[in-house]
Write a protein that binds this DNA or RNA. Structure first.
Lengths: 355, 355
DNA sequence: AATAGTTAGTAAAACGTTTTACTAACTATT
DNA sequence: AATAGTTAGTAAAACGTTTTACTAACTATT
């Protein structure tokens, strides 16, 4: 019957079929028909759309309106459970609002992040949720100055006026160290990353302040991002332990660092917490199932996802209006397990004495 | 100078600026200028494009050509490390070929998968890589009959003629069970999912055949997908162990099942492998770091990602030509660790005797 | 009866590309 | 010198929407 039976139906087809103009069809589709088009016609059009299962062509809509209903979520590494679990919850929330999330990984590389942004600009995404790699503020600034909607996640630039959703890393770390001090640990080490990123920087600052408050020394090791999962990283950590035999507890600044670290501790046959207490940022099944279970400073995944999506949707809704920046700082949640309990140590010691 | 200085530059702007037609510009952009447009003009246009940083508007291209350079990757759960690590490698490979991957999670729900496919049809993605949920063959069939490019991943429909990249689950499981038999385990249990999905079905079939070959009994438990991470799942597994006290080894059919299972084993204070040997499908940091480290039947992540992308790109390239189905079956890789070694058991026993 | 206002629509332009069918001007061939 | 072929381009239509500016036919008001 139809000329091109195999391709999708368009507004034009509907208009022809119902003997109406495409304008009328468009008005009905976009709920702009009230007080303009008679109720009967509206009903007729809606019924026909329902019947044939018409769906607008989104590239045509995008071409015309400039909107894509797409939000990009650019993280360091989508296979890191912290990022992928936030991603999954965001996907869920955004879907209900008619938005799609596109995920991608920067590998913490500036050049890759620039390439990705350039590609997404071509695709006219509506908003950018970005976990910026090292040395990226200029690019963020550029994006913002081009009137794009930008939300920073996990790390931000304190001095400037951006939208962000982050953890209170400084306080979370202080709380963690204070807890260790309270448990009676005397030489608390910090294993972090060589980095200017706010997240990592603030965690280290929190550590330093808490340690100083307790009249303890700064015992810290900082690896390069690319060494964390390599032999070099393991070796550096191993040496660090050898050179500082007095260390009786460690805070790992990221979950990847903790995994590398735990492997080394295991190889060295160091018993947790008897020989060394352990705490890490970010919760994972791994830490819960570890023997002994590892105490963690957990980030509120669901809340982070919710704030990111709500914030971004709000920015989208009020685009082109003057609006306040969205700046949200959430608190971390210390989950205490056996790896950091001094009571465990005493238990073991008393057993050893009895034996 | 320009009328609309803030918006992006278009072909029209370039044509006007260089006193050429938009056709000419388009030919140069799309490398169709050879033998048609003089070398000087080509050079001039290319230089200008470079200078102003022109990038084509992709929704206009999509509207005109029907292509989006986008591949959707629909998995069960993007926060499952198995899927997210495949996703990450695919993203990398696809990027180099000018394609973008869009990830999304079905949660193994048919209705959700249908919604997602409908949305992606509106967005005219070029290809679908799908980990289908339960009872989804009709939908896949429909998609294929609409002349869409569809590649199945992880699970497939054996009787029909689809494109797929999967593990040889049957052989992988047989190999695993044969290994356990060789180690001297006598009552080997299988913990799987109640499911018609080929992956899970074949794993169970492999188990049954291997166990029968060894003249052992089928000792299996099958949970519902939604119970795996819940208390109900743990309780069912706990009861299963209580009701079958003779079990001396377990194969978990997925990594999530193993995590649930390991938590229960820990709570019950069962020692691995002394009280019970453990093997699971899929490798994760968790299994390597576990005490004792858990033996796994690992899937070849990088190879899976490579085959998926190469296969899909090939399908895209030869679209509308007659072409063979892409049907790839990869072998699993048994990584033996202490959780399944009978030598470990003997070591412990001899120690116990000496004590 | 003339005028103003309302109702129920429509025509046409535009978003930015790609591609088909054309052409003017030159060059080579008889 | 006429013709055929080639070179180097261009005009215009089309993809499927949204939206502005218009209008014909009523209805209400003076």
């Amino acid at each position: 019957m139809k000329k091109k039976d195999q391709s999708r139906i368009s507004i034009k087809d509907i208009a022809k079929e119902l003997n109406l103009s495409i304008t009328t069809i468009s008005f009905v589709i976009n709920n702009k028909a009230k007080n303009r088009i008679s109720d009967e016609v509206i009903a007729k059009v809606e019924a026909y759309i329902e019947k044939v299962g018409y769906k607008p062509n989104s590239s045509a809509q995008t071409l015309r309106t400039g909107k894509t209903n797409t939000i990009v979520f650019m993280v360091e590494d989508i296979s890191d459970p912290f990022f992928s679990s936030v991603a999954k919850e965001m996907e869920e929330l955004a879907f209900d609002s008619g938005y799609r999330i596109i995920f991608c990984s920067t590998e913490n590389k500036k050049s890759r992040a620039i390439e990705l942004i350039s590609m997404f600009k071509d695709r006219q995404v509506d908003a950018y949720i970005i976990t910026p790699p090292e040395d990226f503020e200029d690019e963020i600034q550029k994006l913002v100055s081009e009137n794009q909607i930008v939300m920073l996640f996990d790390r931000f630039y304190k001095q400037a006026d951006y939208n962000y959703v982050v953890l209170n890393n400084f306080e979370a770390t202080k709380k963690t160290i204070n807890y260790l001090v309270g448990e009676g640990f005397k030489n608390i080490a910090f294993v972090g990353l060589e980095s200017g990123l706010s997240t990592l920087f603030e965690r280290f600052e929190g550590y330093k302040e808490a340690v100083a408050d307790a009249n303890m020394n700064d015992l810290s090791l900082h690896l390069n991002f690319e060494d964390v999962r390599s032999k070099k990283g393991s070796d550096l950590f191993d040496n660090f332990l050898n050179n500082n035999p007095n260390i009786d507890a460690i805070l790992f600044s990221t979950n990847s660092l903790a995994i590398t670290g735990l492997k080394v501790l295991k190889k060295k046959n160091l018993e947790i917490p008897l020989d060394i207490g352990v705490i890490t940022f970010d919760d994972r099944d791994l830490f819960e199932l570890h023997s002994p279970p590892i105490t963690v400073m957990a980030q509120p995944i669901s809340l982070l996802a919710k704030e990111l999506i709500n914030g971004t949707l709000k920015l989208l809704k009020n685009k082109n209006k003057v609006q306040n920046k969205i700046q949200i700082v959430l608190e971390g949640n210390l989950v205490i397990r056996k790896s950091s309990k001094h009571t465990e140590i005493e238990l073991k010691r008393s057993k050893a004495t009895r034996a």
